[in-house]
Structures are given as structure tokens and as C-alpha cells.
Simulated scan of single mutants.
Amino acid sequence: MELYFSPLACSLATRIALYEAGTGARFIEVDMKSKRLRDGADFYPINPLGQVPVLRTDDGWLLRENTAILPYVADAFPAARLAPKAGTPERAKLQEWLGFISTELHKAVFVPLLDPLAPDEVRSYTREKVALRLNLLERHLHEREFLLDRFTVADAYLVTVLNWARYSGVELAQWPAVQAYYERIARRPAVQKALAEELALYREEQQRRKAETA
């Protein structure tokens, strides 16, 4: 497998899932500003939207959405039990959480808050949405260790998205169960490894950009 990623972007969830499965992939870094790979190649032929993640499977076909990539990885490594069996109510619940994280948190909340070009009115409007969504998570995670009954790819996605709170002005301390969940999941060895690797790459990326503009 090949994973096209950008440091600390939502593609981090797939890296976490791979590490939880005890495997890896060929990781190909994408500069989201230039939309180019580290070797200078154009990323748009890989994804016409210029977004990560993109997973190239061992069969050579491409997946371009977290809600498709994460279940695919889980099914590719069934021994890791990163997703319930297909066709079960539990699998439907997993898909429900992946949809919630993707649409209600990732796209509706954090993308506008992290976009430096977003107008102040957009940011204000977005902040009005935060409480309703995190209140739902707070209720669900109260006295729960994971989103489902064990760690799944949905947790890999959620910890990735919650990691953006510190960069977007969202204070997780207002939601104690959510904050405790984030801190607990972030201590998992696979998550720690993935976060450390991508944080180092993120810092390298920032240094390159500074050098380019100096």
C-alpha cells in the first residue's frame, strides 16, 4: 500500500490505523500548499481535488476519502479487529461515527477554523456549531473508553481531528469526557508513534517554507 499524506492532516488517521494493525505502508508526503510531492511531482493526477489522504492499494487502485480508506484498512487486517464485521449493526454504528467525524467535526468545524483565509464571519458562525457537536460527544464518551466497545478506525479518525483543537482555539477542557478520551487515546503506542513522526515532519515542512520565503 501507498499512503499519500500531509503531516498532521486527516491522513494521520490512516497511519494510526496501519500502526495499530502492526503494519505500515509506503508513505508519500504531499505539500498541501504547492500540491506537489517531495520529488516535485504534481499531486493533482493522484487526486483532482488536491486533498489527502489517498491510499493506493496493493491492486493499484486509489481510494480518496477517509470514510472509504479507514474501513478498507480495517478489513485488510482483520486480526487487528479495527472494525466490526460487515453487515452487522455494530458495523453500521462504525460508519455512523465515521460520517459524524468527517462531516460534523472535520468539515463543518475544523476546516473553517483552521483556514487562514476564512473571513471572521465564517469563523464566528463556525464557533456557534462547536458546542452542539462536542456536547453530543461528551454525552457519548461519559464512562466510555472508546466510541464503540473497543478501539476502531473511528477512534483513529477522532483522535486525529481532536488533535486540531489546540491549533483552532477550541478548548477541550470545556468537555471533560472528550478531553480525557483524547488524552487516553493519544497515549496508545501506535498513536504516539504516528503523532511523533508527523509532528517532526510538520516542523520540517514549516522550516522549508520559511527558507523558501527568506
Rank of each mutant, 00 (worst) to 15 (best):
L134W: 02
A200G: 09
F5L: 13
R15H: 14
L94R: 01
V111K: 05
N163A: 12
Q206H: 00
T88R: 10
P53I: 00
D39E: 15
E212Y: 09
S11G: 04
E121Q: 11
K93G: 03
P84I: 14
L132T: 12
M1S: 02
K193V: 02
Y44P: 02
T67E: 13
A25R: 00
Q95E: 06
A200L: 08
T103S: 07
Y4C: 15
L162N: 05
R91M: 02
N66L: 02
A194M: 08
T103Y: 03
G24H: 00
S11I: 11
T126A: 04
G24L: 03
R188M: 11
Q174D: 15
A86F: 04
Q51V: 10
G87W: 10
W164F: 12
E2V: 01
R26S: 09
A83Y: 07
D149P: 14
L148M: 10
Y72G: 13
E183Y: 09
L8C: 03
L172S: 08
F151S: 13
P119G: 14
R187M: 05
R187Q: 05
D31Q: 14
V111R: 04
A154R: 06
H140C: 01
L134I: 07
Q95W: 08
A194T: 10
G60H: 00
Q95M: 08
K129M: 00
M32G: 15
P53K: 06
R139E: 13
D115P: 07
S11K: 09
G24E: 01
S11M: 15
L3E: 05
P48E: 14
R15Q: 15
S124N: 06
A76T: 09
Y167V: 14
L114K: 07
A21I: 11
E29L: 08
P112G: 12
S34D: 00
V170E: 08
A86W: 02
D75A: 08
P71W: 01
Y125H: 03
E204K: 01
A177W: 06
L70C: 13
V122P: 02
I185M: 15
R184I: 05
E145G: 13
R91K: 09
L62K: 13
E138N: 07
L201Y: 06
L195C: 15
A74H: 10
L148P: 05
L117Q: 12
L132W: 05
L158K: 11
F110D: 02
N163E: 12
Y157D: 01
A211F: 02
E212D: 10
V109F: 02
F110T: 01
L136I: 15
P89Y: 09
S124W: 07
R64L: 04
A25W: 08
E96N: 14
Y182T: 03
L82S: 11
E145I: 04
R36C: 13
K85S: 06
E65K: 05
A83D: 06
G22M: 14
F110S: 03
E197R: 14
